[in-house]
């Protein structure tokens, strides 16, 4: 299903874009969820008003994992979305990019929002 100009149909690109970003968004649950735990660690260190999930070693480990996961996911996200933009033949205008980026962020945050709002917030069974 290609257009006469050699690009795939926009519907197909849109579905691929949506599915890919939803998948990436699913994996964002882990670093974002871990950020919550790290926040409690920092609160415990600074204000001593909560009990953290882990100690210093754990916090360092989690921070490293968050950084690595975020790097990988941002990288994947950029590469994937650029490819989809090329496939769809979108003009490389700044406004278009901005809208696309915002839409991507929204889609990628959807799984995390669902995780927060509609689950018991345990580690997703997929993992």
């Amino acid at each position: 299903m290609t257009t006469v100009a050699g690009h795939p149909s926009r519907l197909r690109v849109a579905l691929t874009w949506l599915a890919g970003n939803a998948l990436i968004g699913y994996f964002w649950i882990f670093p974002l969820g871990a950020v919550g735990g790290l926040v409690f660690y920092l609160r415990a260190r600074i204000w001593n008003d909560v009990v953290p999930l882990y100690g210093r070693d754990g916090a360092i480990g989690v921070a490293i994992l968050i950084a690595l996961a975020a790097t990988v996911l941002v990288g994947c996200s950029v590469l994937f979305n650029r490819r989809q933009a090329r496939r769809a033949g979108f003009p490389a205008r700044r406004e278009t990019r901005l809208v696309g980026a915002l839409a991507t962020i929204v889609v990628q945050l959807l799984p995390f929002a669902g995780f927060l709002l509609f689950t018991d917030r345990t580690v997703p069974p997929f993992f």
Binding site: G33, G36, G37, F40, P52, R121, T122, V123
Partner: peptide, 14 residues
């Protein structure tokens, strides 16, 4: 309760 509870392995029920 103001305690870390996101991303735990087990739910309250479990």
């Amino acid at each position: 309760l103001d305690t870390p509870k996101v991303g735990l392995i087990h739910s309250i029920e479990e």
